[in-house]
Design a protein around this nucleic acid. Structure first.
Lengths: 352, 352
DNA sequence: CTGTTAGCGCATTCAC
DNA sequence: GTGAATGCGCTAACAG
């Protein structure tokens, strides 16, 4: 049985441009021109093509389009892990903003391993991505070079330094770490601990720690009196790290954690061990995740606008695509959210 | 300057199969065969091709491969939102497992809107995905039909019903809801409230609620005595819903929430309002997110193995690709995790 | 076992 | 303005 022209046609298994042209009574070339917005097409002709495409439910074959035009409308993103809300939020913002401009995102994860990141980058290049969004400024020496040679735009997030990328969207981790130190100093703290993320291959963790330490030593605190441990980002590790810290250095009055995840674990340990927060020890987190407001006391933390970072990254990508700009740095504001987990130190040197 | 054979060659801007063949001294067909693991190639020849590919850093052009072979190694996934950890975890498991088999995932979000889901599905088809992972069994009437006609494998998650899909990976939401009811009945509760997710277009929320209600009415509780409100999944809404519930029906002894997100908000409200949990009201969540262990008291909740669901989905997809199976149902275990937010009701009808 | 040939669906050059 | 022809990089027939 033939389809009757004008009825809501049952779509063929795959509608191709040829089918649209056939129905519109023109050549595929014309149909292609219309669908791609090339102005040089008669108004009537254009109408018919558009109508035909709509009726047939035409969806362009991206593989063919990509092969022909060298443009895939695909963006790759490599994050350490999707399990961490801070990255999930960033990807969410990126994906939604990009989708509005017809671009799709392919996601992959490196588990904080720069070598894996490099492999993933190659794979994404094979997939034809036009740009790759990376986290941080520190990468395998070959990664960015490789992207460059492949004509893929590298973009860094979680940093405000362009480095070897075409765009950086983020904030100054070092400054953020320093601002936490400043806040704690102003509260009168003298004995500091830090539970940092694993700094190996992770510039964000490194910078946060170094900014924190620099501010403290600048204030006359001896580096040797500051205890720093590193821990993978999960609650259980945060708890364990806090235990080891407090058992070894019971006189610490405050502990800065490189992530809320760790801070929340730290607070859990304090509960168990009967250590008052902030009475005996003040705890500060980083990221301002939802969990920061769930613990008791609520967590003082540095707010990172993850979703906005994803959106801003998308916008940078879009602008880069217009070729009007060649290098973009978007610095996002961070700010300290003071809640109940921090307090002043009494003149005796113990928290009030 | 010419590249010298044998040195670690600087990769050309884009290395093609032809380049590999050239260097290996064979035809592109042979090179293709080697790279695709077709056994019928001589050992020496295969060696040389492999070596050439490695030295040049050859990465196949997926667009061309896709166009020619109708196989893209691309899987699409449409989830309500990446902001909800339960979906982020699922995607994480899916992505990692698929990556091990050379498949990539394109992600998109529907914001719980079945019409948006339908649009996203079409877009993903245009991208050439071989399968699409959907959440739940309820979809726009055209969505699955469309996928079928386009030759794209539809897979449902968060459900154990095959429906119109080729594979279902998940659990019985109705049964899960019922098991929560059973647990609360056994504790002696008589006055029940529920903060469900928005059930419109969301079979998971609907089933959880219906299973809960069915078990209760089956136990002789009148439907009219059970108070159900619906709320979007975020903490603030959970808090507001709990407020409205407790202010209007102060005699409720227990409230079941369709997600830990809501439950956590509910508990926050109880803290503010001075309502003892579980002394005055028992609260149960759903999902067993990390946040369940962060609130005080810790949350009794139904564990949903989200990451495993993603992994199992990937495996179902892989098996479907082998064409040995044609329909796969994988039911995952859920179990109630009893923590501190629930307790028995005293003979007086109030919680003990 | 290996090379030659012919498209996959589309965007674009070139004629008209 | 519009149509016919070309080829993007690769894989799958087909020969040899």
């Amino acid at each position: 049985m033939n389809k009757i022209d004008g009825e809501v046609a049952a779509e063929a298994s795959v509608v191709k441009l040829k089918d649209v042209a056939l129905r519109a009574g023109c050549s595929v070339a014309t149909a292609s021109r219309v669908l791609n917005g090339h102005s040089t097409v008669g108004a009537m002709e254009r109408e018919r093509v558009l109508a035909a495409a709509a009726q047939l439910g035409y969806v362009p074959n991206n593989a063919a389009r990509a092969l022909r035009s060298q443009s895939t409308s695909l963006v790759g993103v490599i994050i350490p892990t999707l399990d961490h809300a801070i990255y999930a939020k960033m990807v969410s913002g990126l994906q939604e903003r990009l989708a509005r401009n017809g671009k799709a995102v392919i996601i992959s994860t490196s588990d904080y391993d720069l070598e894996r990141e490099r492999i993933q980058a190659r794979l994404l290049v094979g997939r034809g991505v036009e740009a790759i969004v990376l986290v941080g400024i520190e990468h395998h020496p070959e990664t960015v070079d490789y992207l460059r040679r492949a004509g893929v735009t590298p973009v860094f997030t979680y940093t405000n330094e362009l480095g070897s990328s075409d765009a950086a969207v983020g904030f100054d981790n070092r400054h953020a770490g320093a601002s936490v130190a400043r806040f704690l100093l102003d509260l009168g703290h003298k004995r500091f601990g830090m539970i940092a993320g694993i700094t190996h291959g992770n510039d964000r963790a490194t910078e946060r720690r170094d900014g924190f330490l620099a501010e403290l030593t600048g204030a006359g605190i001896s580096r040797r009196e500051i205890v720093v441990v590193e821990s993978r980002y999960n609650i259980e590790n945060g708890r364990a790290a806090m235990r080891s810290l407090m058992q070894t250095y019971p006189r610490l009055t405050t502990v800065f954690c490189g992530s809320d995840i760790l801070a929340v674990g730290a607070i859990k340990y304090c509960h168990e061990a009967g250590i008052a927060v902030p009475g005996e020890v003040s705890v500060v987190g980083f990221d301002n995740l939802e969990i920061a407001e769930l613990v008791t006391p609520e967590l003082t933390t540095l707010d990172v606008p993850a979703r906005e970072m994803g959106e801003a990254t998308a916008e940078a990508l879009l602008r880069l695509g217009d070729k009007k700009e060649t290098a973009i740095v978007t610095e996002l504001p961070t700010r300290l959210i003071v809640r109940g987990s921090t307090g002043p130190v009494s003149p005796s040197g113990r928290p009030a």
